[in-house]
Nucleic acid binder design. Sequence first.
DNA 1: GAAGTGATGTCACTCGATGACATCACCATA
DNA 2: TATGGTGATGTCATCGAGTGACATCACTTC
Lengths: 188, 188
Amino acid sequence: MGRWEPDASGRLREAAMELFLERGYEQTTVADIAERAGLTARTFFRYFADKREVLFGGSAILEARMVSALEAAPSSASPLDAVAAALDAAADMLGERHKLSKQRQAVIAANGELRERELIKMASLSQALANGLRARGVPDSGANLAAETGVAVFRIAFESWVNGPARAKLSDVMHASMEQLRSLTAAD
Amino acid sequence: MGRWEPDASGRLREAAMELFLERGYEQTTVADIAERAGLTARTFFRYFADKREVLFGGSAILEARMVSALEAAPSSASPLDAVAAALDAAADMLGERHKLSKQRQAVIAANGELRERELIKMASLSQALANGLRARGVPDSGANLAAETGVAVFRIAFESWVNGPARAKLSDVMHASMEQLRSLTAAD
DNA sequence: GAAGTGATGTCACTCGATGACATCACCATA
DNA sequence: TATGGTGATGTCATCGAGTGACATCACTTC
């Protein structure tokens, strides 16, 4: 794999995933990743802000799609319903690659730095959803709360799906979690 | 401040806070902190696992107190009410130092690494609360959800309190956020 | 006062991350 | 087809975080 092969970023992502699965995140240096991709460490840092980021390339896209879905929800929909529409969009995007998701989550779960990075991606998502809700006229505090709880539902459902059977549908798990939230808070 | 003065850990924490406020987190090296505390960088890393951790010494105590409060809630209390008791305990511990909290939050908010670290502390808290709920007989999925949403309420209320007037009571803000959550989900 | 103990310092090293500058492949155009 | 421009990559030097090995210091105990 020579210096000018196409898709350097994709090669780096693949090499990283391979090495993380083979020996773990900490036992892999950036130089290792770059070497397997036929590049140098300096080039790695031209594509990714830091070592962790190589695992989170899709999160910006996911966030954009979820925000679009939230914006597209009928204006009559409640805040939580609009958030639910965003979760559906997420299920569409992630629901087809159960094995890959499982591997990736295993790598992340095994390392503190990566868990931290994942959490801040979720926080960014929550922020973006809250902004979308405000644009729909939802007042500040409610927008934050609805977005936060929505992301909590997303995270819990995703985890449950990843650790469950491959044939389960992510969207079903998400709907079930959302229902559970409603009953949890309504019952008081 | 010589080599064998007492409370090395406390001196390091103070020196760090001072320097972070003076020049910012990134512009402060661990060697700077250690020097101001009359120690060396090597010793810093004997007290704190990494540079970020110097700002999060209280989080383990906070977590322990919140879990205690949750466990002490009457067994008749609903999951969300037990979580609310934990939030009250947090308000007790944090509510008296508005200025310090505000400074600390400003430092954290200004830096991505520190935001990440704070998020994982919140995740740890959520995990601990969920464990406490399970010990009370709450089923798995509901325990996670109640803990996550409870921590979301905590975070939002704390932020609102920190950015509000110094005379506001943290416990009041927390109660208001919790009420808002109930109405938000019950209205559908 | 000698031995032991725990806290601290010193040294050397690896790795993540970044700036400055050189080099390469490729493309447009004269 | 030569020339120059452009963007991607490599090379080199450097800083700071973090760690292991070992020396040193203050203090305690017998």
